[in-house]
């Protein structure tokens, strides 16, 4: 089989994260009116956390395969754990609140969920463009 025909796992993971980002934007903004959407949004967040973990593992394994070792921490290496932490926390918040997330008292949690969605896309583009600024 021609190796060029095999999809790069990195591209597949990025594509999947972009699709999930699209889904999470819609779900996060409808959450205030439809509390039932908290469950699918929790699933999207949980899947995104796993995909971010996959991206980090893939990056580290590529470095190991090339016998390279990052000599310093840079923005790229802190974006991965930040995204995993944010999505993991968002999953816990949504799983805990469930359909009650549409309640008036839960505006802090809804705002936090929207902030997580916004940060996720910024982190994704940060990881994409970071090599352009690397020394």
């Amino acid at each position: 089989m021609n190796p060029a025909l095999i999809a790069d796992p990195y591209v597949v993971l990025f594509g999947a994260l972009l699709v999930l980002f699209g889904a999470s934007v819609v779900l996060a903004f409808l959450l205030a009116r439809h509390g039932d959407l908290a469950w699918p949004l929790a699933a999207v967040f949980g899947t995104s956390a796993v995909l971010w973990l996959g991206l980090l593992t893939l990056d580290l394994s590529r470095l190991a395969a090339a016998d390279l070792r990052p000599s310093a921490i840079d923005a790229r290496w802190v974006l991965f754990p930040a995204a995993i932490i944010l999505f993991g926390s968002g999953t816990v918040v949504l799983w805990t609140y469930g359909e009650h997330a549409a309640g008036a008292h839960a505006w802090e949690y809804r705002f936090a969920v929207r902030l997580i969605v916004l940060c996720s896309v910024l982190a994704l583009f940060g990881v994409l463009i970071q090599p352009l600024f690397a020394a």
């Binding site: 070792r69 990052p70 000599s71 310093a72 921490i73 802190v78």
Partner: peptide
Amino acid sequence: SIGPMSGL
């Protein structure tokens, strides 16, 4: 093998 981010 991973570098300083392993500790972080």
